[in-house]
Design a protein around this nucleic acid. Sequence first.
DNA 1: ACTGAAATCCGTAATCG
DNA 2: CGATTACGGATTTCAGT
Lengths: 174, 174
Amino acid sequence: MLEDVDARIVAALAEDGRCSFTELAERIGLSVSAVHQRVRRLERRGVITGYAALVATEQIGLPLTAFVSLTPVDPSVPGDHPAVLARFREIEACWAVAGLESYIVKVRVASPSALEQLLGRIRAAVAVSTRTTVVLSTAFEHRQVVPVPDAPGPQVALDGAAVDGAPLDGSTAR
Amino acid sequence: MLEDVDARIVAALAEDGRCSFTELAERIGLSVSAVHQRVRRLERRGVITGYAALVATEQIGLPLTAFVSLTPVDPSVPGDHPAVLARFREIEACWAVAGLESYIVKVRVASPSALEQLLGRIRAAVAVSTRTTVVLSTAFEHRQVVPVPDAPGPQVALDGAAVDGAPLDGSTAR
DNA sequence: ACTGAAATCCGTAATCG
DNA sequence: CGATTACGGATTTCAGT
């Protein structure tokens, strides 16, 4: 787990990945060099694994998002499915999951017909049957889940329901 | 859609969101000010919607990821479900989807019991039944899907299968 | 582990082509 | 739309506590 100061740094960088060390230091209440030192340590420890620009996929000609669940045709033949799936540009993420299906991948394509073609290529490449769930709209995505222990916590009722407009984060009062 | 230069800038920033304008300019082969100008334009146009540090959730005490599909108990009562769901810290993403269920949310929690409690709170807050798929492992995530038109393209066979070790991105030769 | 200072590098805007 | 210039501010390192 994370210490308070580190958690606040991670939360700040998760929200604004290009935040300067100077601004970060002001927000956290430490010197620039101390913050710098901690960020580098968080990177080395693998807490922060990288930085990314968030791209509106609709704006770059990929307006269709879908989740595709994969079920191997012959489960006795293993093979490194994720490695094969990683070679599809259209696949943004790949999870191995518990349940009827073995994998879920998230894909971004230009059109229904591009989706159809992609599904065909996936089935051919990894010998799976697919089940596809088309995304109608993205309410939010890439949101950050970093717990910030020292932040003034929301008032939370005993059953875990938030009292007013506070986040329903299930955190305990302290 | 995007112009070649913009696409390469977006791709570079998607891969390294903290990349300096100086380094970006070198990679793209433009002056710093030209790149600067283009990045600002991409931000203004909403192509780049933000920057984020990528955080290893296992490292911050949230090792359990799951997808939860939500089906409203009474579909005739609408209400702004995404807005309610957004108030749960544990929910990282929320999509409205086509199919039997209405929404899919991605959650990150500390443990199976934390998941159980979260599901209870979700069902209570938005009056849905839930179906949960636990993630066993994340092969990859947050990968970038930005098409880079001018990059030396992979040799692709007519059926769309890559010839050698190139990405199976279905791009056409030019 | 944090601070403060020094040297270098970068971001930003203005100006010109 | 891109290059050059110039200055203020940021990054990074290091010595000190």
